[in-house]
Amino acid sequence: MKKHGHLNRDIARVLARMGHTDSLVIADCGLPVPDGVECIDVSLAVGVPDFFAVLDSVLADFKAERAVFASEAQTHNAAVVARSREMAAAHIAVENVPHEEFKRRCREAKAVIRTGECSPYANVILHSGVIF
């Protein structure tokens, strides 16, 4: 559920529509966007904006109760693993699934926010919590 204002009108619209357990994906520039799932492309150039800038911006305006990452990040992206641990410490349940399962779950998302990130497995599925 939406908590505060967000400057990107498409992201703000999607956050305002989110209900408990709905999902939203923040993706690197290589993750395929499933047919029928809205893509909000905020990429400007390789690496801009990066995954963490977009994740931080969304989490400042969104109550997440669960986050899903690709298990391959455990061996291929230490920065994503570190952030997943920070999220777990902040009482967001963290789940790791194989990348193929991750991509399958993306089909259920309300939207995919595509960043300019180009490091491996820099993707997360955020599930909406409630603010009460």
Rank of each mutant, 00 (worst) to 15 (best):
S23G: 04
A90T: 10
V81L: 08
V124T: 01
A122M: 05
I11N: 03
P120Y: 11
V37K: 01
E95L: 04
N123Y: 02
T115S: 11
V48A: 10
A78Q: 10
I113P: 08
A122W: 07
P120L: 15
I113Y: 02
V68G: 04
A73N: 11
A70H: 07
E38F: 01
N77A: 07
G36N: 04
H20Y: 11
A70L: 04
H91A: 15
H6N: 14
R9Q: 13
M87L: 15
D28N: 08
V46T: 15
V130T: 12
R114D: 15
H4V: 08
S119A: 13
A78W: 00
R114G: 06
D35N: 10
T115Q: 03
A90S: 13
L24P: 06
K63H: 02
P49S: 06
S57D: 11
R107Y: 01
L24Q: 02
T21V: 10
E65T: 14
F52T: 01
T75Y: 05
D41G: 06
Y121F: 14
N96Q: 15
A16M: 05
G30H: 15
F62K: 10
A12L: 14
V94D: 03
S23N: 04
I113S: 04
Y121V: 06
D61A: 07
R104G: 09
G36M: 03
C29T: 14
R66V: 05
D56K: 10
V58G: 00
V33A: 01
R114K: 14
L55T: 02
D50F: 14
T115R: 02
L55S: 00
A109Q: 06
S84W: 03
E108M: 00
G5T: 13
L44Y: 10
I40T: 04
Y121L: 07
P34G: 05
A12K: 07
D10C: 04
I125P: 14
I26D: 00
V25H: 00
R9A: 15
R105V: 04
A12E: 15
V48S: 12
R105A: 09
A45Q: 13
H127S: 14
A16D: 12
V68F: 03
V14S: 13
F69M: 02
R83S: 02
V14A: 10
D28Y: 10
R105N: 12
G5K: 03
V130K: 12
R107A: 08
H99P: 06
V54C: 00
G19F: 04
V124E: 01
L44K: 07
E101P: 14
V14T: 08
C29P: 10
M18K: 07
A64M: 05
A78L: 05
R114F: 07
A27Q: 11
A53E: 14
G116C: 08
R83P: 01
R17W: 10
V46D: 13
T21K: 06
A78V: 08
I92D: 03
F51R: 01
R85Q: 13
M1A: 13
A67N: 03
V81G: 06
F69T: 09
D35S: 12
H127M: 09
S57W: 03
V130M: 11
D56Q: 07
H99E: 12
A53F: 04
V124W: 00
S57L: 11
I11W: 00
S128N: 12
F69H: 07
K103I: 15
A64R: 01
G47R: 12
A12T: 03
A89L: 10
T115E: 03
M18Q: 11
R85W: 11
